[in-house]
Amino acid sequence: MTNTAFQSNAHTSSTRRPRILCIDDDPDVQATIALRMREYNVEIEHAYYGTQGIYEAVHAHPDLIVMDVAMPHGDGEYLLNCIKANSATAGIPVLVLSGMRDPSRKHRLLSLGAEEYLQKPIRFDDLLRQMSRFVEIRQCDCEEES
């Protein structure tokens, strides 16, 4: 896996914190990611079901999307289809993070344009490394932040 291919996608500059949209119907999954990311210089947006994810993707235009597959109101495949079919959001890199292991689903999602299919549970370090391929993630000075 090379990082070079994706550098053009990283919109991040030192003036703006990268925004990551997290689409997952499980609030605890959302909460743990948000907790972990508190130490980093990023903004996390949340969406809890498929269509909300599409809405947020269009309106918030995040730098990266991390999404689940099995969700109400538009599952991962539908969501990815919509994101990639819309020219306004097609360029946003998408990481799929799912507890599903079905290899055919994985291939379908990759062929729909997901950058990576990651499996839950994932070690936070591994998730961070994957996210860093697409956005610049720096550890922040927490004291200053809070």
């Binding site: 499980d26 605890d28 999954v29 743990t32 990611i33 907790l35 972990r36 099995a70 799912s98 507890g99 599903m100 292991r101 839950k120 549970p121 070690r123 936070f124």
Partner: peptide, 16 residues
């Protein structure tokens, strides 16, 4: 998948 979801959350909170 349904097994894995709570496991993931358990693991994540404990790691935190």
């Amino acid at each position: 998948h349904d097994f894995r979801t709570p496991l993931t959350v358990i693991k994540d909170y404990v790691s935190i």
